[in-house]
């Protein structure tokens, strides 16, 4: 209960600022219309107009809310949840690429981290490339990945998932290298005194010790995966997915559609990260570490 009040306060402030900004940004168009119709606008009429334009510079929250409802709940009510006009359909397209990319990225990240920790050659050679990979703007790289994979006959889900993977493996590598190296020298010496094999040391010491680091990385990786999937949808010609909705919205000046897709993406990311948070809490408390 104590945490509800501050949260609601912050949300209230954001909404107030949002409505105020909508008046400010959309007023010019409202005056323009009034001037052409040759009528004078009262303050209340001005406010009402700025909050209900069809293509506002900044749509008001209730407009975005109505659009989201129209493309999700209302579609479900009509039994058309997966029609092409439904935001649920587009979210699902993006989500599937996100999850596949996240799984691939996590797997790749853990494998690379194990290699880096156990192999000096990999430690020296791979890590610089891992860091370099993240300095290339993903927006420049995404179309090339799509085109190259398309040329070898791979299209659809996988190219987008590859872009997700490209963004999400990085935090996992960095976090897991740190996590796998987190056992103290003393603990490693101790394993040696028991004549433990390398695999026993890995499974019983290094891997469990890295869990808190892994979960922190997974949260960052999950958010990065979603960004990757959306970016991957942009150069495909905006067929389906939240990225496609963003692109189509910007082609046709449908700001309300852009904002509803944005909010949907943010909500999706929040839910995904929260799910990892729950898994983290359950896992670590069962391990006695939380």
């Amino acid at each position: 209960m104590r945490s509800i009040v501050p949260v609601l306060t912050v949300v209230g402030v954001i909404f107030a600022l949002w409505y105020a900004a909508a008046i400010w940004l959309n007023a010019a168009w409202a005056y323009d219309k009034a001037k052409r119709a040759d009528v004078a606008l009262s303050t209340s009429e001005l406010v009402a107009d700025t909050w209900s334009q069809e293509k506002p510079r900044l749509p008001a929250p209730h407009q975005v809310g109505a659009e989201i409802w129209k493309t999700t709940g209302a579609m479900v009510a009509k039994g058309r949840a997966f029609s092409k006009r439904s935001l649920i359909y587009h979210s699902w397209i993006t989500l599937s690429a996100t999850l596949l990319g996240f799984a691939l990225g996590t797997g790749l990240g853990i494998l690379l981290a194990v290699g880096i920790v156990y192999n000096t050659v990999m430690d020296r050679s791979v890590m610089p490339w891992v860091i370099t990979s993240q300095t290339i703007p993903i927006l420049a790289l995404a179309p090339m990945i799509i085109v190259v994979l398309n040329a070898v006959g791979i299209s659809g889900l996988l190219p987008k998932a590859m872009i997700s993977m490209y963004l999400s493996f990085f935090p996992v590598v960095v976090g897991m290298v740190k996590g796998l190296r987190s056992p103290e020298v003393m603990q490693l010496d101790q394993m040696r005194t028991w004549n433990a094999s390398a695999s026993q040391t890995f499974w019983r010491l290094r891997l469990p010790a890295s869990m808190p680091y892994l979960f922190a990385s997974l949260k960052v990786g999950m958010a990065a995966s979603l960004v990757g999937a959306i970016v991957g949808e942009l150069p495909t010609g905006a067929v389906a997915g939240l990225g496609a909705r963003l692109l189509a919205g910007s082609y046709y000046g449908q700001t309300i559609q852009i904002w509803s897709a944005l909010i949907m993406a943010a909500a999706l990311a929040a839910v995904l990260v929260a799910i990892i948070g729950v898994i983290q809490r359950v896992t670590l408390s069962r391990m006695g570490m939380a």
Binding site: E184, M186, Q187, D189, Q190, T193, L205, P208, A209, M211, M287, G288, M289
Partner: peptide, 13 residues
């Protein structure tokens, strides 16, 4: 031999 280190070094998990 069994070796006891300066710190207990028990695994928290």
């Amino acid at each position: 031999y069994g070796y006891v280190f300066q710190a207990a070094g028990l695994y928290p998990w």
